[in-house]
């Protein structure tokens, strides 16, 4: 099963819409509740990152009986130092992002904690690609 969602940078009103849809789909598929929670928490963190830092983005979801693959592709400033961005507490978030309860530098570390596999690549001035994998078996 494949699903695609568009994410608008800066639009906090819709932040979480895609992750909410993913949650509904996984529930309909009777995926284990603990896996659903880990998946949607990671997905929501990644979706908020696009809203907070990028101009726009697309989320590609691919579900098989074995895995849930979610790929977040954004057009944005990119991440100059991924190792630094993965450190808890490091953040470049704006005050607007902090007003929404985020921007404490916890997003990427929390994503890594919740997923089975995570791969992130980024090009400064172009954007970031984040791939998350959850194993169902």
């Amino acid at each position: 099963m494949h699903f695609t969602y568009n994410v608008e940078g800066g639009n906090f009103t819709r932040a979480g819409y895609a992750s909410s849809e993913i949650k509904k789909i996984l529930k309909q598929l009777n995926v284990d509740l603990a896996i659903i929670k880990r998946t949607v928490v990671a997905s929501y963190e990644a979706e908020v990152n696009i809203v907070a830092h990028a101009y726009s983005g697309t989320i590609f979801v691919d579900i098989t009986p074995e895995t849930i693959l979610i790929k977040f592709v954004d057009e944005g400033p990119g991440i100059p130092d991924i190792a630094m961005a993965m450190k808890e507490g490091f953040s470049t978030a704006t005050s607007k992002v902090r007003e929404m309860g985020f921007g404490a530098g916890m997003g990427l570390p929390n994503i890594r904690k919740n997923v089975d596999n995570m791969n992130i690549t980024s090009e400064v001035g172009k954007g970031t690609v984040l791939e998350l994998t959850m194993y169902l078996q």
Binding site: F12, A15, G16, K23, Y44, E99, G101
Partner: peptide, 15 residues
């Protein structure tokens, strides 16, 4: 004390 929509979205994701 955070009263915006991200509070509700976070609640949703965190069950």
């Amino acid at each position: 004390g955070l009263n915006n929509v991200s509070t509700i979205r976070t609640a949703e994701m965190s069950d």
